[in-house]
Nucleic acid binder design. Structure first.
Lengths: 131, 131
DNA sequence: AGGATATGTTATAATTCCTTACATAATATT
DNA sequence: AATATTATGTAAGGAATTATAACATATCCT
């Protein structure tokens, strides 16, 4: 089983993803609604996330912290996707789109305190047997 | 975050572990009862499994398929644990214990069809968007 | 035969998650 | 400035998942 495959395997319930990303369920579902992620579903219709999904969510959080809005993030993700296909030339981002993104980014860049990704503190996922 | 740490991180709900290991919930809980695994618990008391737990369960399944009983598996796990500490000499397995294990293994070795670990078929974890 | 083992099954309660709808503060548009 | 949009909070009600506990049972052991 390849590493890529493993990272794409949907195994985590939303509660764990919330913990890993420090996003609320509402936010995660909202980003799905906007097609930034597309978690799999269990038989009973529960969202199951892959590590790739978690990565994407972490990046969304980062970009949001930088003041970029949904539209901008969508564009960034689209660019990334096309880059992965190794066709830099195919990036068809119009001048207007680019300006819109940059404008927003500059406008809001300083209006946000970068609450940087708190790496440690994964202890909340563990429950040490007391006693 | 180290690889070992990641493998020890409890992220998976029991349903996913059931799928990955092809064990029933009853079996998984029973093995926990016998301290072969010790999954973490969520706030709401749900078992959360790590990849290490999954590995252990796969091995349990394998050993059971070989006709080894709980006691034998416990011993095997204990041996493994001590080996990890690099003290082969410290393996204090009595002659009686060893004989008991081997006897059982030989007696039942052929009484079981090795339903070998079906690697493929992870598709059951995915739900392709129909439509 | 009788006891132990490993697992199935069932019942009941608690937890988690889903969707939908409405609320709201911040931001963008006109 | 007034209005619309965005991103998120919150609440309701229902469905899915999991928990524990108890009893059932087939197989194996003595």
């Amino acid at each position: 089983m390849s590493r890529e495959f493993r990272r794409a395997m949907p195994l985590l319930p939303i509660s764990m993803v919330m913990g890993l990303t420090e996003l609320t369920a509402r936010q995660i579902r909202y980003y799905e609604e906007h097609e930034l992620i597309e978690p799999a579903r269990s038989e009973g219709n529960r969202r199951m996330f892959s590590l790739d999904d978690v990565d994407a969510l972490l990046e969304i959080r980062e970009l949001l912290d930088q003041g970029i809005n949904m539209a901008g993030i969508k564009k960034v993700f689209d660019m990334r996707k096309r880059n992965d296909v190794r066709s830099y030339d195919a990036i068809a981002i119009s001048d207007a789109e680019l300006r819109a993104i940059l404008r927003e980014e500059m406008q809001q860049a300083q209006s946000m305190q970068k609450t940087s990704l708190r790496q440690g503190d994964l202890s909340r996922f563990f429950q040490v047997k007391s006693e």
